[in-house]
Amino acid sequence: MNEIALLQEHGPDSAPATESVLNSARHRLLTEIADASGEPRQRWAGLHRQHGFRRARVLAMTVIAASALFVFSVVVGGVISAEQSRDRTPTAVTLVAFQMPVFPLALDPVPAGLTAPFFDLDGRFLAGYRATDGESGVNLIVYDRRPDPRETTRPVSVHGQRGELWEDRSQNGPTHVSVMWEWEPGQWAQVTGRGRFSTEAAVLALADTVVERPQEVPLQVRLAPVGWEVFAFKDDRILTLKDENSDATMNVHLAERPQPDLLGNIMGAQEVSTVQVDGREAHLVRADEIWFLQVPLPDGSVFNLQAPLFMTADQVVAIGEQVTVER
């Protein structure tokens, strides 16, 4: 056994980090992150909790979309699509019309005191209704296949269908009560209530108010490379599209304010140019590995489009022209 192995096995050691130590350090980091972004801390914490979700591809979610993903082909700048294979970086791109997934269900009526829903797509499609008290809320979730079965559920009836009801009770956190049913063949819906909605009666009453009503997510991209799909959509603010044949991704992110120093803050930034996007003066940064397009919105906020360098500048601007934000 050499010195390295001896140190590993028998060198000085110490107690592992406790949960409270990790929580404390995480809190300090999240505070710094929130300060850096100017966003409320609660929002970061909410996103943090979502990291544990399974990052599944959401191709099947296209079933939920109101119509076919690709309607017509638009070749930008005369670039011809190259053959692509998995794990191989595309060398040229064809842009086509793109339709974002549409959330198919809604609560009607929305209970008093709940906000309009935000949407989140990451292996499952979620509409979240937050309450002004900060504790209560309702999540309406759809799945394109039956989720893994729970250990302990109770049969209930929802919309005349057999459903399952269960309770998630964490030691220190809030209790969640959920009900799930097959709302149409192969499509599953779930209602989860917390706070004042975390009772069996409240959740079943909410489930009875679920109606089919397609809802568009507020951040829309209507042009994308052919063969790309929605990989994730976070909290109405962050959209990631991914090439189904490679690891290439494209991100659109809503930010409260513009980056003041694009050259200084974007990793590997080489040059910044001014471009027109839908009649607005925008900034296009060429960095070592990405294009970064920052486009102002009428309310003073911006959207940032991050795209791979194998796209042309014209294509990035063309995609930027087809980004819309409903507030």
Partner: peptide, 15 residues
Amino acid sequence: QQSLLVAERFGPLFD
């Protein structure tokens, strides 16, 4: 890289 644009993307690195 993403966290330079969206600071919150740094969070998962902690976990």
